[in-house]
Write a protein that binds this DNA or RNA. Structure first.
Length: 482
RNA sequence: GGCCCGUUCGUCUAGCGGUUUAGGACACCGCCCUCUCAAGGCGGAGGUCACGGGUUCGAAUCCCGUACGGGCUACCA
């Protein structure tokens, strides 16, 4: 059997959003699991909405997710170019071929005429596509008008000698469309440029795509593309149409649901492993039990048969939970770079500092990564260790510091820490006696100390925090409240 | 309007005719642990498998209708 070749074909009219990312993931995983080729093709034929910035953003997002493509922009390959705007020659060839076989015909109806015909037909209740007026023209008649310079488009002549066309979809099974409901769709516009359905069909043919894995919204386009490929005399690829991803309200995912692009999630503190994992399992399942799956397991087990047929609602809470799972699983040397980068953005740390006291960072890492879900939570939790410019939270001041016994606890801690050996065990042992000594519940003793040192009621464990802060700064912060 | 697709706990899903009193995960609730917050442990609530008909000894699983939701129906992709 020939090698499996799949493609992800985004149109750079916007950022890479979650639905597109998932389509890319499934294509990639399918190719990897079958020793196939994963191709990236940019469908930039809409000059109004396509931008190089969007293309760059899509490539960036894919790399971030770890989706490496074997052919496409920047890596190139034998089937390029990989931008549709650079493939005119291929489309012209295909067009010429279909003109000679008569599979397409020129249509001189104007856009206005078509619009009014459509409106009228709809009003009387039964619009089912172009009425094929120009299909009745003889070749000579048509050629004469073309020679006279009359503006025209080219349409695909849908075969009339069969009832229906059946496409076999690897997700949905066999799907039949009555040909009577199919339009003689426009393949080439008045200005000579080709339309999406034609370009996609020609490209999939020329690029020898074996499996077209794409969104459900293309299902109705498939018969047009199949008819086109047949007219070209090429083999029909296999299709797999993925269900849509919806927002929490069951409507199409959009800005009003918050972040929709891959980069937006990156900014919100999601790491690529988690997004890949979440999206992979949104519409596909390994066994119904597995919720945490790494890239290798995915690429070794992905199958089109286990893609679900029904749309899925995007659940941000579950993504965040997964993100937390990945964060918690990280070893100190894996997590520390995330801390450095988050702190770096605030000018609180840099890689030089990390180099200088790597052990210190590695001691801090496990205290942090097990209590957060998003990398954006890192800085608020450890900020007190990186600057003396800490402000004590108003709420914490009122609820903790102004309580009876708070100052006494801080004073007692100050005395103990002034000459306690500086390791976690010693600090722990020394401070643990305070509740009994002051005859107070542990929380009433330790919370004031925590607020004094970290500025907040929420922090990494106290004794470890004290140890990492260092004796000098610890005493300074306690003194500040006495 | 026409054509196509879909419908299992709030959400993601397992289930491919009997092993199911429908399993897992997130979210939710309670308890435990505890210096805060998390994490973790234990337990709980939550589904008349959209609805109605069939087929069958037996249906979430097969068939047909209906309802609801979605997609396409552009000289957009």
């Amino acid at each position: 059997m020939s090698q499996i070749r799949v493609r992800f074909a985004p149109s750079p009219t916007g950022e890479l959003h979650l639905g597109g990312a998932r389509t890319a993931i499934y294509n990639w995983a399918f190719a990897r699991n079958n020793d196939g080729v994963f191709m990236l093709r940019i469908e930039d034929t809409d000059p109004e909405r396509s931008t190089p910035e969007n293309t760059a953003q899509i490539l960036r997002s894919m790399r971030w997710l770890g989706l490496d493509w074997d052919e496409g922009p920047e890596v190139e390959g034998a089937f390029g170019p990989y931008f549709q705007t650079q493939r005119d020659a291929h489309y012209t060839d295909a067009l010429e071929k279909l003109k000679t076989t008569g599979a397409i015909y020129p249509c001189f109806c104007t856009a206005d005429e078509l619009a009014s015909k459509r409106d009228e037909a709809r009003k009387s209740g039964g619009y089912s596509g172009y009425d094929r007026t120009c299909r009745a023209l003889s070749r000579d008649q048509a050629q004469t008008r073309i020679d006279a310079g009359e503006p025209h488009v080219w349409r695909l002549a849908v075969p009339l000698d069969q009832d229906e066309i059946t496409i076999s979809d690897l997700v949905h099974g066999e799907i039949s469309f009555p040909l009577s409901a199919l339009d003689d769709y426009i393949v080439a516009r008045t200005d000579g440029t080709v339309t999406y359905n034609f370009a996609a069909a020609v490209d999939d043919t020329d690029m020898q795509i074996t499996h077209v894995i794409r969104g459900d919204d293309h299902m109705s386009n498939t018969p047009k593309q199949v008819l086109t490929i047949k007219a070209l005399g090429a083999p029909i690829p296999q299709y797999a149409h993925l269900p849509m991803i919806w927002g929490p309200d069951g409507k199409k995912l959009s800005k009003r649901h918050g972040a929709t692009s891959v980069e937006a999630y990156q900014d919100e503190g999601i790491i690529p492993e988690a997004l890949l994992n979440y999206l992979a399992l949104l519409g596909w399942s390994l066994d119904g039990e597995t919720t945490v799956i790494d890239a290798d397991t995915l690429t070794n087990n992905f199958s089109l048969e286990r893609i679900s047929k029904n749309p899925a609602i995007f659940d941000a809470a579950k993504l965040e939970w997964l993100n937390g799972v990945y964060l918690r699983d990280m070893a100190p040397e894996e997590f520390a770079p995330h801390m450095v980068s988050a702190l770096g953005e605030q000018g609180l740390a840099d890689s030089a500092d990390y180099e200088r006291r790597t052990d210190w960072y590695h001691e801090l890492a496990p205290l942090v990564n097990e209590r957060i879900k998003l990398t954006t939570e890192i800085v608020p939790m450890v900020r007190f260790l990186f600057t003396d410019d800490i402000e004590i939270d108003e709420d914490a001041r009122a609820k903790v510091l102004e309580k009876e016994g708070a100052i006494e606890a801080i004073r007692a801690a100050r005395t103990i820490l002034a000459d306690c050996p500086w390791d976690v065990e010693s600090i722990d042992a020394a401070l643990k006696v305070l509740p009994e000594q002051l005859d107070a519940k542990p929380r009433f003793v330790f919370q004031p100390i925590r607020v004094a040192i970290t500025g907040s009621t929420i922090s990494p464990p106290l004794f470890e925090s004290i140890k990492l802060l260092g004796r000098e700064k610890t005493l300074q912060r306690l003194d500040a409240l006495l």
